[in-house]
Simulated assay, not measured.
Amino acid sequence: MTTMIPYGRQDISDADIQAVVDVLRSDYLTQGPAVPAFENSVAGYCGAQFGIAVNSATSALHIACLALGVGPNDIVWTTPITFVASANCVLYCGAQVDFVDIDPRTYNMSVERLAEKLAQAEKFGNLPKVVIPVHLCGQPCDMASIHALSRQYGFKIIEDASHAIGGKYRGEPIGNCRYSDITVFSFHPVKIITTAEGGMAMTKDAQLAKRMQLLRSHGITRDVNEMTHVPDGPWYYQQIDLGYNYRMTDLQAALGLSQMQRLDEFVARRHAIAKRYDRLLADLPVVTPWQHPDSYSGLHLYVIRLKLKEIGGTHRQVFEDLRAAGIGVNLHYIPVHTQPYYEGLGFKAGYCPEAEHYYDEAISLPMYPGLTEAQQDKVVDVLREVTAK
């Protein structure tokens, strides 16, 4: 049986394991000192004032929307080339979601399409309350331009940076919220660093941070200043809002805190792998990822696009042939607006043509720090073979 080379894989060291064991032997498994230590580590790294750790990036997106006041009668825009969570978080709030087509080179939200759509929305009085650009594959969106449009049209910004921790935009760390209200990271096992499951919302706004901290833990406060009356005793707490159980555990945070020590090393290794792919794939009938000069990508994913007219085979044939040969390729992502649930909301094929064209050609090749040169050579050799059929 062929051993599959996965498209992504966590890198767990002895130090990571020891960090988790230390928590297992401590007095705290859930809410202890590791969570705030991890929050401070990420906030310090990014240059944001606050980090709010939660049990997933989906949870972080949800409470970010709620903290910005998203609710019924509001509209939020995002990109169709993302995981469904980027759009679902809007629907959780009872708001409407809409999509802005992608840029054909970066695969991120197109600033040109965004500007056009905003101009139209202004005429009809249905401007978005929030826009959620997604840093696909770890490459940041054109945040300065999106931020300038937010000033012009009055919307808030949540950066979905689930793929992008460790990356930079214009020389500064992604997550510093210079061009956004809130930035969200994911720590799923295939991401840049992992806490097994987990996410974090970054902000420089103390009020937004306080609101998200409240919402992640049932809407419960122990702060006397937030209570409606004097506490009944030292045991007392009050639920002052309808929150959720979105907390991260100390076990997860300890793993994340340990992984942060190697974040820059992980991203540098991904860049070395990407550069080697670029070189090895130069003569194949594929389009390799274009990197904007303003960006230093986290390189969570390495996505190629097939030149199908030169290949002769179909997208599916190439994908299945790669999988059959032990190359664990994947596809990121199916355009969200084409999912049956979203079709039920009225979206149809043809709504975001660039996103749909991307979907017809895209394949994510294996990309993770532990990928060896021999494994990478195999990926390229098999790709060469299947595209030459």
Rank of each mutant, 00 (worst) to 15 (best):
Y92I: 07
G47Y: 06
S59L: 00
A43Q: 07
V97N: 05
I17G: 01
A43L: 07
A19Y: 00
V54P: 04
D74I: 01
S56E: 06
D14H: 10
D98H: 06
T78K: 13
D22W: 01
N40K: 14
G94T: 12
W77Y: 11
A19D: 03
A53F: 06
T30Y: 09
A64G: 14
V20I: 14
V76P: 08
R9K: 15
A53L: 15
V54I: 12
C93E: 05
S41T: 13
D22S: 12
V84I: 12
S86R: 02
T58G: 15
A87P: 00
A64I: 05
I75S: 07
D74H: 15
L24P: 02
A85N: 09
E39C: 08
N88M: 10
V76D: 13
C65A: 12
S59Y: 08
V20E: 05
Y28T: 11
A85R: 05
N88G: 05
T58A: 15
V70R: 01
S26I: 02
V21D: 07
Q31W: 14
N40V: 07
P36E: 05
G94E: 01
S86H: 07
L61R: 06
S86P: 04
P72K: 14
A87T: 14
Q31H: 13
G71F: 01
A95G: 11
H62F: 07
P33V: 14
D14G: 09
A19W: 04
A15W: 03
I75H: 05
T58H: 12
L66T: 00
A87G: 15
P36I: 08
Q31N: 09
A85T: 12
A85W: 02
T30M: 02
A57T: 03
T79V: 15
L91H: 07
L68F: 08
P72S: 14
I63M: 15
A34N: 04
